[in-house]
Simulated scan of single mutants.
Amino acid sequence: MDTTTVDTVRLNAVRKVYGKGGTSVMALAGVTLGFQRGSFTAVMGPSGSGKSTFLQCAAGLDRPTSGTVLLDGEDLAGYDETALTKMRRERIGFIFQAFNLLPALTVMQNITLPLKLARRRPNPARVAEVIDRVGLSERTGHRPAELSGGQQQRVAIARALVTGPAVVFADEPTGALDTRTAREVLHLMRESVRTLGQTIVMVTHDPVAASYADRAVFLADGRFVGDMYNPTAEVVAERMTRLGAWAGETQAQPATGGVF
């Protein structure tokens, strides 16, 4: 079966090397992974494992040294920088730890900003549905400073969903939140996958956050070293403690992956 027809995002043998010669650093060493439509995946690994580089390459924010990144079967290598920027605005959503809201704009203005940047007329029904799903219908006229941290992250989630993106990349989305608020945000992300068929790829170091995902994939030393479905916080935490040993055992093996 041709997996590129069912993967929203697919990386094939992606390598990313920074620098040249003796000072070069290989951040990704031939990673092959696929992410199916309507799935919620946590990407985990210790510091220096390549998580951030993985996200940047998968989202079209950085170009791999070799290998291919496919979005809905289209190779991003065929896009120039202008086309990549347009593609990210229209087909990729982003959620960050720091929220990245514009303080002078209201909740409604922050949420609809990606549509304005893409010169797309907002669909009032779609906007209202997204705002209702994140529980902010009574807050649309407020500015970020008038919201709690959890509410600000809900604005960021709505902003990521409003364009109906093919995939949402989340980078430590609960890192700045307290435990209870983090769980509410993770539940909201889980629900967007279940009810909207959204595809979410979340980089996290938190086993509890990973337990909300359908699948956890693990990176170590720039390599894919394994995954698990229906992860629990306890099993993920135990797996994370062994990543160093795994990396040593798998360095001699070519990285493999796909739709698991």
Score class of each variant (00 low, 15 high):
residue 191 E to R: 15
residue 123 N to V: 14
residue 117 L to D: 00
residue 124 P to L: 03
residue 183 R to Y: 12
residue 104 A to E: 14
residue 212 Y to R: 13
residue 93 G to S: 07
residue 97 Q to N: 08
residue 165 P to A: 04
residue 204 T to N: 09
residue 126 R to W: 09
residue 199 T to E: 07
residue 169 F to D: 02
residue 132 D to N: 14
residue 121 R to A: 14
residue 208 V to N: 10
residue 198 Q to I: 09
residue 120 R to Q: 06
residue 167 V to Y: 02
residue 187 H to T: 15
residue 123 N to R: 15
residue 122 P to L: 02
residue 137 S to V: 15
residue 119 R to T: 02
residue 162 V to G: 03
residue 165 P to N: 06
residue 113 L to M: 05
residue 100 N to F: 10
residue 163 T to I: 07
residue 148 S to V: 13
residue 213 A to E: 05
residue 147 L to F: 10
residue 209 A to M: 07
residue 116 K to D: 10
residue 204 T to M: 09
residue 215 R to T: 11
residue 184 E to A: 15
residue 93 G to W: 03
residue 92 I to L: 10
residue 181 T to F: 12
residue 116 K to V: 12
residue 175 G to F: 05
residue 202 M to D: 02
residue 120 R to K: 06
residue 122 P to E: 01
residue 127 V to I: 07
residue 221 D to N: 12
residue 104 A to T: 15
residue 139 R to Y: 15
residue 215 R to W: 11
residue 102 L to D: 04
residue 141 G to K: 12
residue 110 N to H: 01
residue 108 M to E: 13
residue 93 G to N: 07
residue 146 E to R: 12
residue 178 D to Y: 13
residue 178 D to N: 13
residue 120 R to H: 02
residue 142 H to I: 07
residue 146 E to G: 11
residue 168 V to A: 00
residue 188 L to M: 15
residue 222 G to V: 08
residue 133 R to Y: 14
residue 107 V to P: 10
residue 223 R to Q: 14
residue 180 R to C: 06
residue 95 I to G: 01
residue 205 H to N: 04
residue 186 L to W: 06
residue 161 L to E: 02
residue 115 L to D: 00
residue 177 L to Y: 07
residue 192 S to E: 04
residue 212 Y to T: 08
residue 221 D to F: 04
residue 120 R to M: 05
residue 216 A to W: 10
residue 176 A to Y: 05
residue 180 R to M: 13
residue 125 A to H: 14
residue 188 L to D: 10
residue 131 I to W: 12
residue 146 E to H: 08
residue 112 T to Q: 00
residue 144 P to C: 09
residue 143 R to I: 05
residue 164 G to H: 06
residue 120 R to S: 03
residue 172 E to L: 00
residue 92 I to W: 03
residue 95 I to A: 01
residue 203 V to Q: 09
residue 113 L to V: 01
residue 139 R to L: 14
residue 222 G to M: 08
residue 103 P to Y: 11
residue 202 M to C: 06
residue 171 D to H: 10
residue 119 R to K: 04
residue 193 V to C: 01
residue 194 R to G: 11
residue 92 I to K: 03
residue 166 A to Q: 11
residue 136 L to I: 11
residue 116 K to Q: 12
residue 208 V to K: 09
residue 101 L to C: 01
residue 135 G to L: 13
residue 206 D to K: 00
residue 198 Q to G: 10
residue 175 G to H: 06
residue 187 H to Y: 13
residue 112 T to F: 02
